[in-house]
Amino acid sequence: MNNNNNNNGNDPRQPSTAKQYVPPAVSAQDLPVDYSGFIAVVFGIAGVLFRYKLSSWLAIIFCAQSLSNMKNVETDLKQISMAMMFAVMGLVTNYFGPVRPGTQS
């Protein structure tokens, strides 16, 4: 890329030895654990099963965090989309679902 040699003979550059950058192959197992995605799934399921509004909202917040820190689309997106579905499902059942017996507004 930069082959302009200095006039002095003490130039450390050696264009002949230059090697292209090869990113190291990282297996899916070696990738760091997506904790926020996992927490989002847990909160999402809790929101759907126990019908806690706060739980579903927290699931959406952790989904956003997981999405912002996403490095590998293939592996991470499944977990994030799963968490997102549970979170949205929880909110739908909480706000538009039938009223639980014995509750008053």
Binding site: N2, N6, R13, Q14, P15, K19, Y21, P23, K71
Partner: peptide
């Protein structure tokens, strides 16, 4: 680094970016 290395950046062309973004 320009004075010390003949190849800078992760690409092989002239207009390749110097930095490789691996995450935010």
């Amino acid at each position: 680094f320009d004075k010390n290395f003949s190849l800078l950046g992760t690409g092989d062309g002239k207009d390749t970016p110097l930095l490789l973004k691996e995450g935010q």
